[in-house]
Computed example of a mutant assay.
Amino acid sequence: MFNYSFRWNQALAALPQMLDGARVTLGIALQSMAIGLVLAVVLTLCRRSGNWFAAAIATGWVEIARNTPGLFQIYMAHFGLGAFGIHLSPFTALLSGIAFNNAGYLAENFRGALTAIPETQTRAARSLGLSGGQTFQLIVLPQMLRIAFLPTTNQMVWAILMTSLGVTVGMNADLAGVTQELNARSFRTFEFFAIAAVIYYLITKAVTLAARLVAWRLFIY
């Protein structure tokens, strides 16, 4: 017989704490995306460099990031590196794991974006006297980022949701960690996690909407 008694007032009273956790969640996601974007560009250049060693490392990174669980990557950062004497805090391990994952997915997005750019543009730029680096920086890179912009938005949403895995390595300052601690003290599982789910939903929807507005403003012909 269903006899559960909802206590929303108790959960809503803790909303400020959960919103503080949401800010930490968003901060981790933004930092991991910034790091991931830089690494993804480097990986993309390595895969196109013609250097087999650099290309092999970059390809291995992408394959591991895209074909292993995100939880595994965070565990390796927090527990796995400890075997070599490298001890990362839960925050750093979570950030490193998500950034590693982001870099792999974004590098593959960038690879796909590059294939959509006609090779004739590169040849035309070189014929005008631009160096290889200038051609990539001024001609190829802006178009690559434009084509990959919306897929990058999807990765940002994934990064936000992936922060919830931080509870498995002792991260307790983000939204999932705060919610778990509140639940452990009150045992109001449904109420707290329902509110957390709504907050995650609102954050990801806000990010998606903001990205569409930015794309509409930047990519008008």
Rank of each mutant, 00 (worst) to 15 (best):
M1L: 06
Y4W: 12
R7Y: 13
W8R: 05
A11P: 15
A14S: 13
T25R: 01
L26Q: 00
G27V: 11
I28V: 13
A29Q: 05
L30P: 02
Q31M: 14
S32F: 00
S32G: 03
S32H: 03
I35L: 08
G36S: 03
G36Y: 06
G36D: 02
L37I: 13
L39G: 03
V42I: 14
C46Q: 02
S49R: 01
N51Q: 12
W52S: 15
F53Y: 10
F53K: 05
A54Y: 12
A54G: 05
A54K: 04
A55M: 04
I57G: 09
A58Q: 02
V62Q: 02
I64V: 08
R66P: 13
N67Y: 06
P69V: 14
G70R: 07
L71G: 08
Q73F: 02
Q73M: 05
H78R: 11
G80R: 03
L81A: 05
G82Y: 04
P90H: 05
F91A: 01
T92V: 14
L94A: 04
S96G: 09
G97I: 12
F100Q: 05
N101A: 05
N102F: 10
Y105F: 13
E108V: 10
N109C: 10
G112W: 01
P118Q: 06
P118M: 11
P118F: 01
P118Y: 04
T120L: 09
T120I: 09
Q121G: 11
Q121T: 09
R123E: 14
A124D: 02
L128D: 04
L128S: 09
G129K: 04
L130D: 04
L130Q: 04
S131V: 15
G132K: 05
F136K: 05
Q137Y: 14
M144Y: 01
M144K: 04
M144F: 01
L145I: 03
R146G: 08
I147A: 11
I147G: 09
A148M: 08
Q155T: 12
M156Q: 06
M156Y: 11
W158C: 14
W158L: 13
I160R: 00
M162G: 10
L165F: 07
V167R: 04
T168V: 15
T168R: 02
V169Q: 00
G170C: 12
M171N: 09
M171I: 09
A173W: 10
A173G: 00
L175K: 06
A176I: 07
A176G: 11
Q180C: 05
E181K: 15
L182K: 09
L182S: 08
N183E: 09
R185V: 12
F187Y: 15
E191G: 14
F193W: 07
A196S: 12
A196P: 11
I199T: 10
Y201W: 15
L202K: 04
I203M: 12
I203P: 02
A206P: 07
A206H: 05
A206G: 14
A211S: 11
L213D: 02
V214F: 08
W216D: 00
W216Q: 00
R217S: 07
R217H: 14
L218T: 14
F219P: 11
F219A: 10
Y221D: 13
